[in-house]
Each structure stands twice: as structure tokens, then as C-alpha cells.
Design a binder for these strands. Structure first.
Length: 637
RNA sequence: GCCAAUGUAGCUCAGGUGGCAGAGCAGCUCACUCGUAAUGAGCAGGUCUACGGUUCGAAUCCGUACAUUGGCUCCA
């Protein structure tokens, strides 16, 4: 008799030794069909596994995150099997689950995306066969024998801990070395798609074999797959590199790889972003500073960048002295701090700087505005006493929230703690980390902890924003820096008339203005809220005779700082409206004889609605208010 | 930096196997003067990323460089 305890503490007895599946079926057939694996003592097992003694179990179903991971892992096996069926000489290496699907690294001749269709068709066959996944435990000798033709698997087997069980999984004719668990049978993969191929190295080591990495995604139901594919399509449509060209915002040139050129319209958005930033920072008690772009090597040696970051820095010889273009603003900020003597009464000092920094990123890492070599950081350095840490960090979190929510961006927080390689004493780290934790607790939002992921000079909080498509981006960061104040011998006079070392926070909210800009383009899909829109209103005279009158209206709107243009082309009204809509001008104003006679405006918004007979005053007032309040919602009138 | 793919007009893209470079949009000109998502006709626009090579002949084949894209790696 085997007694199984369920999560609700109910107990069920079984005459014979049951498998996990037997237990699931005893609950109900329908439930069993939805089950993927089971969990015993926090460990995952296959459903086909026998339960030999009394125990508590819980089931992982298709609705659980863990269930989806198992499905995708199994999908990787199916893909590998399909590849082997088509390319018998291919050698498998590893096939894990990643955040967005799964992949398998395979040693084979390069293939192209055109070949994916054939692999998918082969996978389809395997899935339709509903092959069961069977687990088998073997000795190391047996494993070495089975995989004798595969040097990668041999390497893995030889590295396994002696105490560890070596398990194989078989489905159909396919056998793979694998810890498991797997779904009961391949038929559970209801929706899958192979997405892309790329090169990867065995063990991520450039000196080792170059492998083909095949990426795929799978779901328990086809609808979810379609939803996912739709999301990818949507993201492609919003691609900031394409929209940037179409909306005439920025461009890239071979003459300066990774260094964006901002066009007039892009600059309108840029300036709107910065103005907003300045407003909020002024309110939050920051001052703004500016430091040079190029500084003497000696400074970088003092800051430690020369030692740690040199390969990413651009340098230049000037009058026999070596200079480096700043990859970060902080050393300049240190010099600024040192220009005067501080009292504890002066602290905290919150010094912002929107600094242009250059980092020589690897050529292969560049990507639109998301990864560039020249960018502006909305930096700020806060110098404070140790008992101000909590309040200051909390202040940064609140400011970040205020700014992100202005764009309709949600976010989550991650705390990174002391890494293995670090400077500073245990007490310093504890004080710093506790300060961050206290601020996080007071802030009250849930946060994740990345143990050992902090910078060598201090712990940090990273802020990850979530855009309209649900994608997350790390933008903001709040880092405590215990290195620089030391290296630059910063101090302030305490109440005790003694010199003290200030604590320093290093923080950004947009992160990189360029990158944040790119994220916003995709977040808004090019339809910026009125306060950011490069052209807020376009005037469309319905015939050439009215062009002069339209110019007069524009001049008047100019005085109210409403960004507007006149489309004087000899095109039909329909055509002009279409063109304006295609570049998302929020307010389209048609000027006809009626409007001229009554001195009113007819305004069309992007939703296609038209408001006729608006007086100039009404229009200016509501637009100005909308802009001044930086309202996200695009119901303007 | 590594692997792979790509690079043709301002933009988006056609141009099997080598034989005088094409379209749509945008632009310009003319006609039309229009009431809420594309009026029509015409014109102009390219050393086919760059530099080498093969060939009687190269956008096309080969090599190198540069750039872009997807990954890898990197992002103290």
C-alpha cells in the first residue's frame, strides 16, 4: 500500500506501486491529460516514474511556468531527433530552455532558414506519432559506449559528478543524454515553430567548435503560439530602426558606426524628453552640471578605468599627453565635488549631468539605438552621509516611478549584491546593502535579488521597465559606489569637526537617452503623445488660394509654441490627410473657406474623428494644457 | 572580436545560368483646386558599399575591407 499526500493534505492509498500518471488519473482523466510532470520534495520527476514509497506529491500542469519549460525542453529533443533524421551526420551537444523558447546546439554544416521547413515537417511527424519519453538510468561505462561517436556528449559525461545518476531519454528511435524530466509523450506539443539559426561555440568558447544553434518556440496550444507569433510580427512593425527612417527621426552612417545622427524631428522628441527630465529633477532637488568629454589619462588611472575598462575607451594623443574620451561621467563628477569644501550641512548633494559618453562596443554588438558607441547618460551623482542612504535611494526610486509612469511604462526592481571580486570591507558592504534593502522595503514593491551580481565597487538596484508589448528593458540603475570617493579622497566636515568620507550614489533613469528613445519609439509604435510629437499639428489648406491664410494660422500657433507645419503641396485633401496620418501627426487641421469665414478650425485626430468649428482660443487652450500636463492619453480635444 | 546572411535611386524592393541597370513611393514640371487615408500625365534621379582579381565583357563569379542584420561573446 502506497500513500500519496496531495498539496491540500488529503491522502490517497494505492494497492500497487503507482506511476505519477496513475495518481493523476485517479484524480481525473481530464486533469491527467493536462499534467506534465510531478514534484516530490521540490524535485521534478516524469509522470511515468514509479512512486515506490509513501510521499507527498504535487503535479506540474500545462498551466504552470515549469510545465511550459518542460514542454520546451522536450521540444528541443524532438527538434534534435528531426535534425538527425534529415542530417544523420549531425552531432548533438546541448539543448536547453531559454526565456523565449528553446534551442539546440548542433555540430553540423551550416544550414539556412530555408531548411527549417523540412525540419519542422519532420518534427510534425514525430509529434503526431505521440512517442512516449522513456527514462533510463545507465552506468558511466554504458553512457560512454552509447555516445562513443559524439565527442561533445563524451565530454559532458566525463565531467559529471561521480555521485550523479546518468539518465538517458528515449522517444521513438532517438536517445539523448538528459537529466529530464520530460512531457509524457510528444503529442503534447500542440504548437511549435522554429524561429532562427545562428552560430554558437561549444562551451561559448571562441576557440572551440563552431556549432549551429537552432531556435524554436512551443506551446501547449496552438492559440498561444499564434499569439506569440503575432507579437513578434507586431514588434517587427514597430522596429525603431524602420520607424526612425520613416518618421525622419534619426539615421546611421558608415562613417560613424554605432553613433546615431538625430534629425530635426528626432531632436524635437529628444528635447521634449530632456525638458521633462529637467523639470522633474529640479523638483527633486537636483542641480545640473557638465563635465568635459575628453580627459587626461591620469584621471582614468586614478579612477581605475584605465585598468579595468581601457579596451572600450577611445584615446588620443595631444601634445604628447594621452587623453581618453569619457566612457562614464563619474570621474569628472569627482573633480567637480573636489572644487569646494563640504559641510555635513551641504549633504546630500545631488548633481545631475546629461553626459555624452563613448564606449567602443564590439562591432557585432551594435544594434540601432539600443546598443551604440556614443550615447548620453542621464547621470546623477549623489553624495551623502551613511544615514542618508535609505532616504536618497528611496528618493531615486520615487523619481524613477514618476518619470516612467509618465510614459505609461511599468517596471520591476532587482537588487544585486556583493560579487566574489569586490573591494571594500564587510561592514561597508553590509551597511550599503542594508541601506538599499531598507529603501526597497520602505518603497514597498516586490523585488528580486541577484546574489553576487553587483558591481565590484558596490551593490545596486536595477530598474527594468516593461513596454507596451510586454518586453522588459533594463534602464534605470541605482548603484552605491564605495570605490570612487576613496580613490579621489572625497570628504566633508562632520558635526564633530572631523573629516568624513561621503557615500556616493551613481544613478540613471533613462539610462541611455538614445536607447530610451528607441524603446519609446517601439513602445508608442511611432505614435508619440502630443507633448513629444515632433510635429504636433499640420495645417492642410484645401486649395492653393488658402495657403496664405494657413500660413497666418501657423504664425499664430507658433506664438503659442505649438509645433506645426503647413502642407502647401497641390495635392488633394485626401492625399494630404493620408500622408499626415502615416507619420502620426496628432492634430490634422483642414483649412477651407468655411473655416476662414468663421475663423474656426476643423481638427482631425489620429483616431479619424473630426471636430469642426473650434475657435482658435479653444484649440490653443486645450492643446497647451495637454502639452503642459504632458498627458499620455491621446484624447486631446 | 567570432559565425552566418545581406549591401542596387532619398525610401521599399525587382534584376535564374556573366552581355548597355528596372519598378513603386518620395522629388521636380504641367494640368487639376479638390471637404477628411493615395487625381492624372511627363521629367529627372544610380561608378549597383569600396578596393583588388578572373573574363572579350562583372550588379552578377572570386578575394579583401567597411557597414547592416540575426546570433555568439561582451556590457567593470
Amino acid at each position: 500500500m502506497i500513500n500519496i499526500t496531495f498539496p491540500d493534505n488529503s491522502i490517497k492509498g494505492f494497492e500497487n506501486i503507482p506511476t505519477g500518471m496513475d495518481v493523476a488519473i485517479s484524480i481525473s482523466e481530464g486533469f491527467a491529460r493536462n499534467c506534465v510532470a510531478m514534484k516530490i520534495n521540490g524535485q521534478l520527476f516524469d509522470l511515468n516514474q514509479d512512486i515506490k514509497k509513501d510521499t507527498a506529491i504535487s503535479f506540474i500542469t500545462a498551466n504552470d511556468e515549469e510545465g511550459l519549460d518542460i514542454l520546451r525542453h522536450s521540444s528541443a529533443h524532438v527538434m534534435a531527433e528531426a535534425v538527425l533524421n534529415i542530417y544523420p551526420d549531425a552531432k548533438l551537444t546541448i539543448g536547453p530552455v531559454v526565456e523565449d523558447g528553446f534551442y539546440y546546439d548542433i555540430d553540423m554544416d551550416p544550414i539556412s532558414t530555408d531548411d527549417l521547413g523540412a525540419i519542422e515537417a519532420e518534427m510534425k511527424k514525430i509529434i503526431n506519432a505521440k512517442n512516449r519519453f522513456e527514462r533510463k538510468v545507465v552506468s558511466k561505462e554504458q553512457a560512454l559506449e552509447i555516445f562513443k561517436d559524439n565527442p561533445f556528449k563524451l565530454e559532458l559525461i566525463n565531467e559529471l559528478d561521480e555521485t550523479e545518476e546518468i539518465s538517458l531519454y528515449r522517444n521513438g528511435n532517438f536517445i539523448d543524454l538528459c537529466r529530464g524530466p520530460h512531457i509524457p509523450h510528444t503529442g503534447m506539443i500542440k504548437g511549435f515553430k522554429l524561429l532562427k539559426i545562428s552560430g554558437a561555440y561549444w562551451r561559448a568558447d571562441q576557440k572551440r567548435e563552431q556549432l549551429q544553434r537552432l531556435y524554436g518556440i512551443s506551446f501547449f496550444d496552438k492559440k498561444k503560439l499564434n499569439k506569440y507569433l503575432h507579437l513578434i510580427e507586431e514588434a517587427k512593425k514597430r522596429d525603431h530602426r524602420k520607424l526612425g527612417t520613416r518618421l525622419d527621426l534619426y539615421s546611421f552612417h558608415d562613417e560613424a558606426a554605432g553613433m546615431p545622427f538625430f534629425h530635426a524631428r528626432g531632436m524635437e522628441i529628444w528635447n521634449a524628453l530632456l525638458e521633462y527630465w529637467r523639470d522633474e529633477h529640479r523638483k527633486a532637488g537636483y542641480v545640473e552640471t557638465k563635465t568635459p568629454v575628453m580627459l587626461n589619462r591620469k584621471l582614468w588611472e586614478q579612477s581605475g578605468h584605465w585598468e579595468n575598462y581601457r579596451e572600450n575607451m577611445y584615446t588620443s594623443m595631444i601634445d604628447d599627453e594621452e587623453y581618453a574620451i569619457k566612457p562614464m561621467n563619474c570621474p569628472g563628477g569627482m573633480l567637480l565635488y573636489k572644487t569646494k569644501a563640504y559641510s555635513y550641512r551641504d549633504l546630500p548633494v545631488r548633481a545631475g549631468e546629461v553626459g555624452l559618453v563613448h564606449r567602443h562596443e564590439l562591432s557585432g554588438a551594435l544594434s540601432g539605438l539600443f546598443r551604440v558607441r556614443a550615447f548620453h547618460q542621464d547621470d546623477a551623482h549623489i553624495f551623502m552621509t551613511s544615514d542618508q542612504i535609505e532616504d536618497e535611494v528611496l528618493g531615486v526610486l520615487n523619481l524613477s516611478q514618476r518619470i516612467y509612469s509618465r510614459f505609461g511604462l511599468d517596471f520591476h526592481l532587482e537588487l544585486s549584491t556583493r560579487p566574489k571580486k569586490s573591494i571594500g570591507s564587510d561592514e561597508q558592504w553590509e551597511e550599503a546593502t542594508n541601506g538599499l534593502k531598507a529603501a526597497l522595503d520602505k518603497y514597498g514593491r516586490k523585488y528580486f535579488i541577484n546574489e553576487g551580481d553587483g558591481a565590484f565597487y558596490g551593490p545596486k538596484i536595477d530598474i527594468h521597465i516593461k513596454d507596451a508589448l510586454g518586453r522588459t528593458w533594463q534602464c534605470g540603475t541605482v548603484q552605491l559606489d564605495m570605490a570612487l570617493p576613496e580613490r579621489f579622497d572625497l570628504s566633508y566636515k562632520g558635526q564633530d569637526n572631523e573629516k568624513h568620507r561621503p557615500i556616493m550614489i551613481h544613478r540613471v533613469i533613462y539610462g541611455s537617452l538614445e536607447r530610451f528613445f528607441g524603446i519609446l519609439v517601439e513602445h508608442f509604435a511611432g505614435r508619440f503623445p502630443l507633448w513629444m510629437a515632433p510635429v504636433q499639428a499640420i495645417l492642410l489648406p484645401i486649395n492653393q488660394d488658402l495657403a496664405g491664410y494657413a500660413e497666418k494660422i501657423k504664425a499664430e500657433l507658433d506664438t503659442h509654441r505649438i509645433r506645426c507645419e503647413v502642407d502647401k503641396r497641390s495635392e488633394t485633401l485626401k492625399k494630404k490627410i493620408r500622408d499626415a496620418q502615416l507619420v502620426y501627426v496628432p492634430l490634422i487641421i483642414t483649412i477651407g473657406d468655411k473655416e476662414k469665414e468663421t475663423r474656426t478650425l476643423s481638427v482631425r485626430t489620429l483616431d479619424g474623428k473630426v471636430r469642426m468649428g473650434l475657435s482658435m482660443d479653444e484649440f490653443v487652450t486645450s492643446v497647451s494644457n495637454h502639452v503642459k500636463e504632458r498627458i499620455l492619453d491621446d484624447t486631446i480635444l
